[in-house]
Amino acid sequence: MVAFGTGSKKIALELLVIAILLAVIPLVLMGNAYYELLAATVVLFSSMVVAWNIIGGYAGQLDLGAFAYVGVGGIITSELWIKAGIPPLLGIFAGGAASLLIAVIIGIPTFRFGIKEVWYALLTAALVVIFNNLSRVLMGPTDYYLPPKTGIIYLKFNSYEIMYAIASVILILTVLANLAIERSKIGYYLKSIREDELAAEMIGIDTRRYKLYALMIYSFFLGVMGYIYIVLAASFSYRMFDSSSSLSIAIMGIIGGLGSIEGGIVSAMVLRSLGEYFRSSFGSTVPGLDLLLYGIVLVIVGIFQPEGIAGIINRINKAMKKKR
């Protein structure tokens, strides 16, 4: 967690690195629509992993339900546009709020009754399946398409470059939210809950309340991202409530290192890009090579490098400090 030094210098540096990274990517990939779409998707995925870091990394709750919130937010935003004509630029906030509401309804009893660790993971994994099955009943098996209009008030463009820019803005906002949390009381409280919930309670922390805060912020961000996800995917259906995508978010967060923004971004960008590369190159002959890769990395990280990429960054930092 001391990857780029400390204090406000750290924030400036971190944002600079991310901004440069985001600016360089299109220079390399410019002109090829497939790569542009891929870049936008990877950046959006990174934002999801960074949002997951709030509940999973800081608060230490193994949430496997990301796409419950992505789905609710995205579908609500889209439906508001299709059915009520509310432009998505406003609608995403309603979508985020809808996800947040779900999080509150689920979170209050869950934390009230002390559900944690594996039981929390299972509960959130089950949440995705419940939404999947119920929306299948409500929406049918159909794919729904967004209106063909484009423009900033619809947050929808035919150019994937602009979609990439929108995803980048979302990533930067999510990173800023993480940094704000990390540097304030709530961040310290969440981390202490992750370390030892009883000890946290014994220094006066209302652990249920703070876990709920983390869940609310996380779900709101994912809800907002849901619509962008739909724009990139070009359609939506009940299949948005996808268990394995939800799992991937948590996997990338773990591989990145709990509580590490930069670790999360690196792991999401590398794994997701590699995964896409495998899928496009070998997808027809050896399907699932991307997920096989996640699996192998996950086992190696779990056994040999439990602190993930952040642990590696930390070690490099320490070595460099010694040299100086």
Partner: peptide, 8 residues
């Protein structure tokens, strides 16, 4: 038994 915040 001490209850440290190990990763902080």
């Amino acid at each position: 038994i001490v209850r440290p915040f190990k990763k902080m």
